[in-house]
């Protein structure tokens, strides 16, 4: 518990739903920590509260209650300059690489924005050098700078989004299903990029996904969410080899295996369970 970069405690976020008396708890008493340099995977099905948790951690939406501490500082009450300084420490990579890039801006402007906001006195030439270096880190070419997002593929756009997040030198990178909308072949490239970044820059990752395979590839520890609550949290090997919670087991069972015989057996077992249940 000595060097935790992020500590989330008792996080709750409610949403008012029209026509319903009670608020819906999208995030219901979630607590976890991430050590510096660690990658925590947050897994769960759609609507389980993963993205809401991420946005509360980044203060893009306000949590109803609970605390989020980055470097021991509670960020839920930050205002003005302090909030702006926090913005440079934690960044977000989006799921949708299309709507997350402004179609009217050139790549250069998109990536430079964080530098312009947090270090407004840096000269243009230096900003450019930094951006070129960033492009290299994420695997893009300098001649991409003057183009607009429309000229790029999904994978390239995601790289631009990652470069934009890295431009402010964040300590924590929150990735909200960053590969979910990419082709499988591109997914692997982006995942490797994250792994590379983690090793090279010592980044701490909160990696959100709904499939277990990508998480296993990248994360040191994994938390499983269901209906706004964390069902299970543990190291990767613990969770994958010996899942405890019923929901985790169900998730594991849903992972397709590259073995047709095994798959057929599983399908038969599921069918048998179904017919057995009907009277």
């Amino acid at each position: 518990m000595t060097d935790n970069l992020l500590e989330v405690e008792g996080l709750v976020r409610e949403f008012a739903v029209r026509g319903r008396h009670q608020n819906v708890k999208a995030v219901d008493d979630v607590s976890f920590t991430i050590a510096r340099g660690e990658a925590l995977g947050l897994v769960g099905e759609s609507g389980s509260g993963k993205s809401t948790t991420a946005r509360c951690v980044l203060r893009l939406i306000e949590p109803t209650s609970g605390t989020v501490r980055l470097n021991g500082v509670d960020i839920t009450s930050l205002r003005g300059r302090e909030l702006r300084e926090f913005r440079a420490k934690a960044q977000l990579v989006f799921q949708d690489p299309y709507s997350s890039l402004n179609p009217r801006m050139r790549v250069e402007e998109i990536i430079a924005e964080g530098i312009r906001i947090h270090r407004p006195r840096v000269k243009d030439a230096e900003v450019r050098d930094e951006i070129v270096a960033l492009l290299e880190v994420v695997g893009l070419r300098p001649d991409h700078l003057t183009r607009k997002p429309a000229a790029f593929s999904g994978g390239e756009r995601q790289r631009i989004g990652i470069a934009r997040a890295l431009a402010v030198n964040p300590e924590l990178l929150v990735c909200d299903e960053p590969v979910a909308s990419l082709d499988v072949s591109i997914q692997a490239q982006i995942l490797n990029l994250f792994q590379d970044l983690k090793a090279r820059l010592g980044l701490t990752l909160l990696y959100i996904a709904h499939d277990l395979a990508t998480v296993r590839h990248l994360c040191d520890r994994v938390a499983v969410m269901e209906q706004g609550q964390i069902r299970e949290i543990g190291t990767r090997d613990q969770l994958y080899n010996d899942p405890q919670a019923a929901y985790t087991k169900a998730l594991m069972a849903a992972v397709p295996r590259p073995d047709p015989i095994e798959e057929r057996r599983k399908l038969a077992a599921r069918r048998a369970a179904l017919t057995g249940a009907t009277p």
Partner: peptide
């Protein structure tokens, strides 16, 4: 509601 607005906000704009 576009994500690039949220991205800008998370950059501290």
């Amino acid at each position: 509601e576009e994500l690039f607005v949220e991205a800008a906000r998370s950059l501290g704009a």
